[in-house]
Structures are given as structure tokens and as C-alpha cells.
Design a protein around this nucleic acid. Structure first.
Lengths: 264, 264
DNA sequence: TAGTGGTCTAGACCACCAC
DNA sequence: TGGTGGTCTAGACCACTAT
């Protein structure tokens, strides 16, 4: 960062460098705003501009009354290619989630189950092959790992399938939804996954445990198909700083999964 | 947003609502900061706090001297499941990218090709099955669509493979890298894709055409394997507001691709 | 030149937390 | 109670764009 840059960017650069090189480690407290103000001989607002920059990069987070700390990153892995596959024991998404958590040495749970009837948005209607405004059954949960929220999931089903398969209940389906649908002749034989990223809405940030302003979400949409029609659309919002989606495809006899890993 | 919220959050909420409902449309100019200051009877700094909030959500972007506008979203789709598959005409990543762009009615190009020798970071070493610090060949490009930068790509190859396959050249490999490797007995028969999201580094933001501070990147890592070993690791940084990664897997005879679509 | 957003100051008071 | 970050004011000057 050149010397002619704005003051606040120069301050941000120096702090960023100290974090990158480990002079200030993850979990450590930064100097207070007043200390930085004196240290750089600027106004407190200028210090706050610098800190806002780092916050928007997801590097630090501030708590009123306590201070500003360098954020730590823990990563969970979501194996998309087999998470819901039919030849595993996992009977539905929830079971698959438990299995993933256990395999990664964490405790998984979900909360706030909700069943609702919703009107199909253009986006949903196009993917589920129904008319805009048609009724859809939505079954939503929040997933937690080690007591912390990690992702929000909302599955949409065409009304006729939901009725035939007993999905109009405000609780878990015994044996899992996928199995229940298969029994009624709606077997999932293919899927299309769409992955995007964006900043969370204030509502999503709240549900995901107060995401810092520098934390994006990973938006994951899976639409599944039988041989005749779309069966289900599952929208998952992952907290971007804590999740990784993985696809393992093809012949992987030479693949040795490394259990760990930062984001880059 | 309750009335007891901070002023700047209340201003942000009202503007957000006006954008959401279409009172202010994509591409439109927002009122100037001075107008908002008078309208809400607050200081200009408070207005700027509100605008910063919306900027961090990716909803608006400001340009010095011009004004503040509501951002438009165009979405490109990257078909990960077949983008590099062997039974398509695409001979390497670059060709595959052209084909995708053409299919979506856009012009694709790439710039700033670079070949470098780099030392393996722990992250790269683990995935490519080499020792930390070993030499790797890096071949990087920036991808543009309709003249705008969309993604940065960097492929890493173990030195012995790069030498055997003629990858130590500062230009394209005729027929494509994947084909060149296959000819020398290094055929890609499986791959592992990892997808994460985070905020861009200042350097990435610059290379991607000055990403707004509310735009995350989609980090896409593909590691490919032969029957014996890892062959290649390709790291792609997508501008998050302009790209979508799609996997089409299984039997999809009932799938009718919808060519369009917003992010949610 | 007039108007826009970008940077910066020097204060003030408040809400929250640890002691 | 003292210190932290959170909010807010009322200015100033600068850099850039349009006309």
C-alpha cells in the first residue's frame, strides 16, 4: 500500500499485515481504538474507518465493551456428492448431516423445524415445474454444530407430492423424506446443484448467530428429479466462514482425503 | 426495523425497502448524500454509515463525482460437472470457458497469462501429494466476459508432470493441457471439488475490476487424479455477484435447463 | 464551475462489560 | 467505576465528474 493512500487504508494495511504474519494471532485482541488513535495520531473516526475495512474483509470482529479481536476460522465440510445418495445409510438430509458431523468429530443438531405452505416464487416455480403462485410445502430447519448455527435449510415440495408422501406434518418423517417419496414412486435419480455467494440479509445474519459484516453466505440449491419431473428443491444457506462444500466425482482410488484445512 | 434502532440503520432499512420493492430500480441513482442528510435531518456522516451498510450488502455502489446507484446483477453459469469432461470437444479449461460463454450469448476472452514456478504451500502440498516447499508449475489466467473480468484461475502442476507434458511454456499448450497430460499417461479419471466463500483480498478485488466492498468471492478448488496420483490443482476465484457454479449429476431426462435466473 | 462522493477532524454522549 | 466500542454531530478540504 503506497504512502499516498488514504490514512485509514494505510492503517488497515498495517494491521492486516500484522495479522497475516502472526504478530497478532487469531483470538488476540487488537489495540483499542483510542490506542490506535494516539499511535497513528489521527481522529478516532479514521481509526474506525480502518477497522471497518478489516471487518468487511472478515478478519476481525468487535464487541461493544470488550474490544476487537482477530477472528478464528473453523471449517466444516459438506460432501455434496454423496450426502443424500441412496446407497448410504443416511435416510434423509438430517441423518446425512448427523453422519457428517460425527465423521468430523463434532456434535450435530438441528432446531426450529417449521412446516409451511408457501406460494411459488418465479424462481421456485421454474425449477419445480409448477405455475407461479402454486402452493408449495416448505420444510425448514436450522443446523447447529457444537452448539453454533452453521446453516439454514429449506426444502420445497410440489403440493401433490407432499400430500401423497405425508409431508404435511410439522415434524420429522419417519425413515426420511427421500425414502417416503421413493415408496410412492417418486424416486430421485438425478439432481442439479447451483452454488452462488452473496452477503447475508440481516435476517439470515441473525439466524446464523450474528454473522460479522464481513462474512458472506454460500447459497446452495439442489433440485432433484425422478424420471418424470422435479421432485424437490432444497435451499441451504451456509455461513461462509465456517463451511465448505465438496464434490467427489469419478474414479478416486488415488485420493487420500486430508481431514483439515483452511480456506485457501 | 424497530424505531429504537440506530438512525443509520433505520435509514438503511428504508432505502433497502425502496430497492426491494422497486421504488428505486437497478441502475437508478439514489438521492445524493446531501439530499438524504436534509431529508432525514441528520449529519452527513450518519448518511454515510447507512450507505456503507447497503454497500456491504452488495446492494449499491458509489462512484466519486457521479453518485450512488443500485447495482444490477448479471449471472454467468459455470457447469462444473462437464466443463472439463473428456467426452466433450473442449480440449482444456480455456476452450471450455469459451464454449460456456458462447452458449450463454456472451463473448469470452482471457488475459494476463502467466507461467511461474512456485514453492508448494502446506495447502497445495497436501492436495497434490508433494512435500511442502517442492517446486510447482503455476499457470494463471484472468477470464473476461463481455470485456468485464469474471474470474481468476491458477492451475498448479507437480514439476515432473509439467516437464514431461511441456507445461513449462509461457503460452497456451496446443490442444490443451488435459490432452497433453493424457498423452503422456496422466489421464484424469476423477476429481474433488471444494467450494468456499470469503471476502476478496484487496489484490483480488483489484484484479476482478474493483469489486464493491459488499461482493464476496466464490473460491473453487478442483484437484484431479489419475489412477495413481493427483495431477493438477486448479484454483478459481469467481466474482461472487456474477457467477454461479452448477453440477448436473445422475439421470436428468426430466431436467429442462432454465436459461436465466437471479441468485435466490 | 458546480455538484458529487472521499477523507478527516474534534469533539459528544450512550450502551455494554469487567472489575 | 473506568474502559470499551457504538452512535452522532457539524463542520472542513480534497478528488473526481459533468456541464
Amino acid at each position: 500500500m503506497a504512502q499516498s493512500d488514504p490514512l485509514y487504508q494505510r492503517i488497515a494495511s498495517e494491521l492486516r499485515e500484522q495479522i497475516r504474519t502472526g504478530t497478532i494471532k487469531a483470538g488476540d485482541r487488537l489495540p483499542t481504538e483510542v490506542e490506535l488513535r494516539d499511535q497513528y495520531d489521527v481522529s478516532r473516526n479514521t481509526v474506525r474507518l480502518a477497522l471497518a475495512m478489516l471487518q468487511n474483509e472478515g478478519m476481525i470482529s468487535s464487541v461493544q465493551g470488550k474490544g476487537t479481536i482477530v477472528r478464528e476460522q473453523i471449517m466444516l465440510t459438506y460432501h455434496a456428492a454423496w450426502a443424500e445418495s441412496r446407497d448410504r445409510n443416511a435416510s434423509d438430509q438430517t441423518d446425512a448431516f448427523y453422519a457428517e458431523m460425527k465423521a468430523q468429530g463434532r456434535t450435530g443438531e438441528y432446531r426450529d423445524f417449521e412446516m409451511r405452505i408457501k406460494s411459488a416464487s418465479p424462481h421456485l416455480a421454474a425449477r419445480l415445474g409448477v405455475e407461479e403462485g402454486d402452493s408449495l410445502v416448505s420444510r425448514a430447519i436450522s443446523r447447529y454444530a457444537d452448539g453454533e448455527p452453521f446453516s439454514l435449510q429449506d426444502s420445497y415440495y410440489p403440493m401433490d407430492i407432499a400430500q401423497a408422501c405425508g409431508l404435511l406434518t410439522p415434524h420429522d418423517v419417519p425413515g426420511g423424506v427421500i425414502r417416503a417419496m421413493a415408496k410412492k414412486g417418486h424416486e430421485e435419480i438425478g439432481y442439479v446443484d447451483e452454488l452462488t455467494t452473496r452477503m447475508p440479509t440481516p435476517d439470515e445474519a441473525r439466524k446464523l448467530g450474528g454473522l460479522g459484516s464481513g462474512t458472506p453466505v454460500l447459497v446452495y440449491v439442489r433440485t432433484t428429479y425422478s424420471d418424470a419431473r422435479p421432485l424437490r428443491l432444497t435451499l441451504t444457506i451456509f455461513a461462509g466462514d465456517r463451511n465448505r462444500v465438496v464434490y467427489e466425482i469419478g474414479d478416486l482410488q488415488a485420493y487420500v482425503p486430508a481431514e483439515n484445512g483452511a480456506s485457501k
